[in-house]
Nucleic acid binder design. Structure first.
Lengths: 120, 120
DNA sequence: CAGCAGTTCTACAGAATGTAGAACTAGAGC
DNA sequence: GCTCTAGTTCTACATTCTGTAGAACTGCTG
């Protein structure tokens, strides 16, 4: 239920990169530019994807304004942290998972973790 | 490409729970018992799923013996840690993600993390 | 070499996703 | 109020992934 499709992810990436809300046309244009997948899509396609993302609670839609505007329901970092917790939550041996996880982390990241844990 | 289907996950859970390798028939029987999904499946179904899991490198197959035997390619904890890293790797702002992640962790887990980080 | 246990091939159904035309709707201007 | 039209929703179809399993094939064992 968590994983998104290719296009859905592209849209979310754009929304996560913009704190303000965007219209379907903004997104259509952004998706067409080569930086972001470079796809030339019909407006309805973008709308459909946005509707699906809304249903999945990934985006929030502002219906008051006429070209509806959309924004990510949560910050990307939060979403990713949630995903990580989702994975961890599915483990019966959480300690073992954490051990492996930390074992593979870079030194900087280990340092970051120590710092975060210190101020908790 | 990472996420597994319902049945695929059930099979992996069984394989992860057994360090020795299992045959498709072992798995078929195990899947039929009510503890694990309680599904009565055809042997070919189990075989198909195992082949797919092999293609995805989730399981390793021993072809020497005649009822082929299968085992998980990696320990569950390792798999999950990998998944978590996969998520984290997709972030440009890893520190932010880690901050959120640690922020949502239980106290015991925080303690576990400190302990692990100490002996690193 | 005949049977059969076991494996691989092939097939189809259902869900999720990508894609977009067709049909509908709300508000702007007359 | 009525008519356009931008914008939205509906509907539809292709593709891929997964679940499911019969059909066909293969390697032993007697």
């Amino acid at each position: 239920m968590n994983s998104l499709g290719e296009l859905e992810r592209s849209v979310m990436d754009l929304l996560w990169a913009n704190s303000e809300s965007l219209s379907a046309y903004d997104l259509q244009a952004a998706l067409a530019s080569p930086e972001s997948s470079g796809r030339e899509l019909a407006a309805t396609t973008v709308l459909t994807v946005l509707s699906r993302l809304e249903k999945k609670n990934f985006v929030v839609r502002e219906r008051e304004v006429r070209p509806h505007r959309y924004r990510a329901a949560s910050v990307r970092a939060e979403h990713m942290a949630d995903l990580m917790h989702e994975v961890l939550g599915g483990a019966n041996d959480r300690t073992a998972v954490l051990e492996r996880f930390v074992g593979q982390v870079t030194n900087e990241e280990a340092e970051t973790l120590r710092r975060i844990l210190a101020g908790r």
